[in-house]
Nucleic acid binder design. Sequence first.
DNA 1: CCATTATAATGACCCCGGTCACTGAACGCG
DNA 2: CGCGTTCAGTGACCGGGGTCATTATAATGG
Lengths: 213, 213
Amino acid sequence: MQEKSFKSRREQAAATKQKIYASAEQLFLRHGFDAVNIDDIVKHAGVAKGSFYVHFESKNLLIATMINHYVWKTDDEYRAYWESLPPDLPVRDAVLALAGKIADVITASIGCKNMGILYQTQLGESNRTHAMIDYNRALYQLFCDIIGKGLSTHEFRSPLSAYEIARHFVTAYRGLTFEWCVRDPDFDLKEQALRHFEILLHGLDAYGSPHST
Amino acid sequence: MQEKSFKSRREQAAATKQKIYASAEQLFLRHGFDAVNIDDIVKHAGVAKGSFYVHFESKNLLIATMINHYVWKTDDEYRAYWESLPPDLPVRDAVLALAGKIADVITASIGCKNMGILYQTQLGESNRTHAMIDYNRALYQLFCDIIGKGLSTHEFRSPLSAYEIARHFVTAYRGLTFEWCVRDPDFDLKEQALRHFEILLHGLDAYGSPHST
DNA sequence: CCATTATAATGACCCCGGTCACTGAACGCG
DNA sequence: CGCGTTCAGTGACCGGGGTCATTATAATGG
């Protein structure tokens, strides 16, 4: 009814969560994920250890969520990039350009170690967790849109739907990124991604046509 | 010089390692990886906790090594399968058949959870670790051989070497497997793998030819 | 305005993977 | 045979992630 304090309980809770999140982010940036433990975080935030677990499931999940937040921002970048390309550019070339752009962003802005953590988390304990960390939804959507355009202009002829093709693209990029994370300095993500997508795109062109035997 | 005991120190050490490994395997099979801790293992093996770490780097690595051992056996299975195919079968069809066979084996004999653990480990703390857990070396070699055959019969015409093409295949399969691990019941590995490889193979056929613009 | 309920917050505690200073037996050597 | 040296083996100990019974207080309702 009346407002006894500045914050309602909900607001207070949200503020605490934010305080913990901010402390964690700050400390992680300064010292790295491994060198910072939960006690450091809650001490810096001025709350008790238990409070951390009121608001976050686990340290790993917090880290993954943090990285994922950042990845979401890059997803917007991809769409902006795609929209900046000349509209008359063949879809094929646009997809290739995008594949290169993604490699640039992942390599330069996200980094091998962070991608590795993200992928590790996704593989970890099933619990509907990865509904949350559902990496690359926007990118998948972008691929759908682009392929949809290619199909409607009949630049691609394929019995597969835009969604299915997009899934193949995203799956392929997962493999490329995984390989990069594991092999890091010996695997050039951009170079491999471009070659791989060239093959895939050739394959799609030819997909409707009869194959030998 | 003279033989005071049954076992030399080396032999004794190897026996201890084996005893620990066997205990771990047995307990893991019975109760699952998570439910068994190091104390359980060493107690069952009748040695001290420290001995575990004399012979194994960590619990995770032991688990990964164990799974990997098993995966190595399946690698042999793939080659046997390949050799069982009629020699006059077009390489293209053989690759597709193999892609299907791999999906069968991974799905039925290894399982989603174990593949996930293996991939997680591979992504984990770089340390030359993954030199050891270097999953699928034999499979990669098999792909090289098959593609080499395809190139030498001119069934494939490609500027890429057999090694490069094999890398693309393996990378693609990594992506497919990763996606399967993450999405499990909603992603049919075999179906997706077959479709994906059809596209890739079409792409290779067309790869040498000039592309539109 | 007090009684009841819901839930944010607490911190002592547990669990477990991993460490390390130390022990003692096998080995090599004069 | 005695004497270092090496190294498998030991187990008390630690660090840190995660838990849970308990407390404090806002929201609710009579």
